[in-house]
Write a protein that binds this DNA or RNA. Sequence first.
RNA 1: GGAGGCGUGGCCGAGUGGUCGAAGGCAGCGGUUUUGAAAACCGCCGAGGGUUUACGCCCUCCGAAGGUUCGAAUCCUUUCGCCUCCGCCA
Length: 435
Amino acid sequence: MLDPRYVADNLDEVRTKLLRRSPAAAESLSAIAELSGARRKLVAETEVKQAARNAANQDMAKLAKSPDKAAFAARREELKTLSGEVKALETQLSQHEEHMKAQLMAVPNMPSDGTPDGKGEDENVEVRQWGNKPTFDFEAKNHWDLGEQLGVLDFERAAKLSGARFSVLRGLGSRLERALSAFMLDLHTVEHGYTEITPPYLVKASALEGTGQLPKFEEDLFKTHRHGSEDDTEALYLIPTAEVPVTNLHQNEILAAEDLPVSYTALTPCFRSEAGSYGKDVRGLVRQHQFHKVELVRFVEPENSFDELEKLTGHAEEVLKKLGLHYRVVELCAGDLGFTAAKTYDLEVWLPGQNAYREISSCSCFVDFQARRAKIRYRPGGKGKPKLVHTLNGSGLAVGRTWIAVLEQYQNADGSVTVPEVLRPFMGTDKISTS
RNA sequence: GGAGGCGUGGCCGAGUGGUCGAAGGCAGCGGUUUUGAAAACCGCCGAGGGUUUACGCCCUCCGAAGGUUCGAAUCCUUUCGCCUCCGCCA
């Protein structure tokens, strides 16, 4: 959420920045600026009345002790009116604030100044590449053919259980999923200093509001109700990413400055309804309703949040480097930036079976956008007024897509797959094959 | 699921309708004292919002939301969380 005061005081600047995303992003800004100004007047008006009521009530406390019952009764009648006026103003103010917040919650974050211009995916900027495209003296297969032939991947039975966009792993396929997860968590906790978290996979709407998935993107989520209940206020949602529970761990908290940066990593399943992606990636594991992801989340001081993004991106890249998987880093242009992000790097791994780079991680700095929604603050220098922290997160990595990349980049002519060196201790074998 | 209890400032804890944002203690911060430290003593010490160049002043908040009342931390309703006992259960 943007700061309503900042929007009101810097309307043109905010509009210019949001227009870099899209015309729609800047739409309600004037209304918000107006609401913000009107709110200040309403607050002043309300407080004058409240002060009058408070003063009168103190008099009443004295009158109540005096023997003059008539004076007390008369004054009480007067105060009834005043009290009613106060209540009316308070109601008006809270409705006004609710209205303003509702508008504000639908406004995306401002792109960082360094973010390149551009309307969409095609205008993202390649920042660097690592490694080389593997070459094959045979035609590279895609992972779904490889996986099914190796007996480690089964879409048909998954469809029987759950329908489209689900998968079943088997044997060394399952082992590979587990190996990748453990390898990533070990790397981030031991070498990068992250604390491992195992969060709930079902969360309240308030958590999703904190990180920005709600109220705007409900259609992307799986929503659950207790048996017999249709009450939306107690609905729980399956998490679309660990970002949600892990970032909201500190909602409504004031962190100690000396504890920053706080760094968490979490392996969780992620659930996405993929509404509106019909026809996209219908085959294979790329786009599933359920997948595992190791997430990195950091809470940092505002001064160095963009440096911290470079570090966090580096932590995610390290996974690919250690696995020996060729990839590239792209910086998202303003038009392709997610709703909450100020700046984002995507890591795209090379998939020979599809002859394409595919997103395997997305690392973003949200500045104070999520922190304002979730009320996550810290006390600078250990004293004084609390300030909003900056939040960052990135996939480190999407396990399912890493699984794909290992199969496709490490495939052999006979349809077997060589296990990357670093995974062998976790896999107990150096090869996945049918024999 | 049944019965009961509890939610107050960073922590502990008083407060059951009137001047209470809230006693007291601990922790923390600043100072006096001391060669230094400890102890003792004095002061400061929640958040949000409005207003002000600033000092400050004002408003709101005692798990949350409603209600009663001239007035609510205190009474009522609903709700959430935690604890104890019973039931069920991985």
